[in-house]
């Protein structure tokens, strides 16, 4: 078939079916702008920052009496807060993303342009990841600012390390959320699934292991292996390692981990986080690309 004369001189052969960073960027910026204009984003940010400030204030009551200690406990509470709030924020952001666009029809608007589904998926991930980066930075900024007035032992490096790990975990949850968003077509159902996953990862997984330990005397190595497979636990362990340099505080299972992995324990938990950050997104990409019908 001979090439038709295109009035605007559009040369279709110049269009690459490959991922074009420029297009990913345009979509990411659009998604980011949308995210930071969303009231849920502000609610989550405000909630996270307020709770972080509250924890920091309450946990450091009187430096006159107790000296400058206590950042460890503050950090532990911050980590638990991140486990609760940032995970939920990232999961729901991800779960709403594509399902919401599909439901409102804007996904078709986007995909009527010369962009590929891969570019839409990547752009959405990057845009929301950027929004989460801002949320995490704001929360830790507030916590750090409050603690800087109250304690001298807060270590800048540790603060940044935990903030970084928090963002990484947020990206993990975002990826899982987006996988849900690809699989589940309705926004409401996707949000419900995200909530279930959140409950499962934050509470039910750990509670299940606890019950198994109580019932069957699960060996420490099994306990550690099962627990560390949970990205939220991997995040907590990463944070504890950067805070303490080891997992000795965590009883026999922690001692087992230190004995078995030594100094590479932090790399192990970080590796688990990275694996979790990549795997659900790859799966989401395969499904979104293969799934023909929007």
């Amino acid at each position: 078939m001979t090439a038709a004369t295109a009035p605007a001189g559009i040369d279709s052969s110049a269009v690459s079916e490959r991922v074009e960073p420029r297009l990913v960027g345009v979509i990411a910026l659009k998604v980011l702008r949308e995210a930071v204009r969303d009231r849920w984003f502000w609610l989550y940010c405000a909630g996270f920052a307020l709770l972080a400030a509250g924890i920091t204030t309450l946990a450091l009551p009187d430096t006159e009496v107790v000296g400058t200690g206590g950042f460890g406990r503050t950090a532990a509470s911050l980590v638990a807060l991140v486990q609760l709030v940032v995970t939920l924020m990232a999961l729901t952001l991800g779960a709403r993303s594509l399902a919401g666009e599909r439901e409102s029809g804007t996904l078709r608007f986007l995909l009527s342009h010369p962009v590929s589904r891969t570019e839409v998926l990547l752009g959405t991930y990057l845009g929301l990841g950027g929004a989460l980066l801002a949320a995490v930075a704001a929360g830790f900024g507030v916590a750090g600012l409050v603690s800087s007035f109250r304690s001298a032992v807060v270590d800048v490096g540790i603060l940044l390390k935990i903030a970084g790990a928090s963002w990484l975990m947020a990206l993990v949850m975002l990826g899982i959320g987006m996988l849900v968003s690809v699989v589940v077509r309705r926004t409401g159902a996707a949000m419900g699934a995200a909530l279930l996953i959140w409950l499962g990862l934050v509470f039910l997984g750990d509670l299940g292991i606890m019950g198994t330990v109580a019932a069957t005397n699960l060996p420490a190595e099994t306990l550690f292996a099962v627990a560390v497979a949970n990205p939220i636990e991997a995040f907590r362990l990463t944070a504890i390692v950067s805070l303490e340099g080891s997992l000795d505080a965590l009883g026999p299972a922690g001692t087992y981990a230190v004995d078995s992995f030594g100094n590479s324990i932090g790399w192990l938990t970080l590796g688990v986080l990275f694996a979790w950050a990549v795997a659900p997104m790859v799966l989401a990409w395969l499904l979104f690309r293969r799934k023909k019908d929007l």
């Binding site: 532990a76 509470s77 980590v79 638990a80 486990q83 609760l84 934050v202 509470f203 997984g205 750990d206 509670l207 292991i209 606890m210 330990v213 109580a214 699960l218 420490a220 306990l223 550690f224 627990a227 636990e233 907590r236 505080a249 965590l250 009883g251 026999p252 299972a253 922690g254």
Partner: peptide, 13 residues
């Protein structure tokens, strides 16, 4: 009773 559970100290669970 189960020292192994120290692993979970401080978790939301």
């Amino acid at each position: 009773s189960y020292p192994d559970l120290m692993f979970f100290q401080g978790t939301p669970a």
